[in-house]
Design a protein around this nucleic acid. Structure first.
Lengths: 106, 106
DNA sequence: GCCGCACTTGGCGAGTTGGCCAAGCGGCCA
DNA sequence: TGGCCGCTTGGCCAACTCGCCAAGTGCGGC
């Protein structure tokens, strides 16, 4: 694995890393239903607004969501909706594991 | 977000986290071409064998790959090949970013 | 049995992440 | 213009990650 290759994999890993957090997955799924302001997301997540804001900044830097300032509010929108496909695969992994554990227990 | 929901998102996040590392992405892609033993992967990655072994253990625990001990060697195989779809989406994100940056610079 | 090989595990240091608190910043209304 | 509101940023600490080294395990050949 040379430097060029490593950089390519690093770039992809950064995107996955941006999604690899329960709060951020929740936000992505919620944004898939339409735009939301920080205050709405904060309430849904149930954490400090500063914490949510940092998660949003991270997702934005990764290019997954975009922000739109309107007056004193900031609305976020999902930009790369294909990330939702990740979740269906993750679900498959979980289901396969559950099946295997059940089979092993039997 | 209640505890039950949080657990669901946590489980998904764990799978994404398992993939969110350049070395592990490389391994996954390599295994998509067929089974490989630890020594082969170690050489390709160019890191210590103990390091590679830990990455493999992590991917295995996440349910993404499976191992098959044969004599003194251990061969790993991709179990959830759908994770490859992740990469095509990651690529899309990167392309979109490159395009936007080019547009902004213009 | 014992050595060597392939691999895993434990441990350590350096760097990163995630949460809250507190402070800062910009828009809006009185 | 002063103060509130929505949001972001900086600081801090605890927890986690990643890499290497060293030690341990288990199979196979001599």
């Amino acid at each position: 694995m040379n430097d060029r290759q490593r950089a390519r994999y690093q770039a992809r890993a950064d995107i996955l890393k941006a999604l690899a957090h329960p709060t951020r997955l929740f936000v992505v799924e919620e944004l898939s239903r339409g735009e939301r302001c920080v205050c709405e997301l904060t309430e849904m997540v149930g954490a400090d607004m500063s914490t949510v804001s940092k998660h949003l900044a991270l997702l934005k830097r990764a290019g997954i969501i975009v922000d739109d300032k309107r007056g004193s509010q900031v609305f976020y929108t999902l930009r790369m909706s294909c990330v939702l496909n990740f979740l269906s695969c993750a679900e498959k992994v979980l289901k396969a594991d559950a099946r295997d554990r059940a089979a092993a227990a039997r």
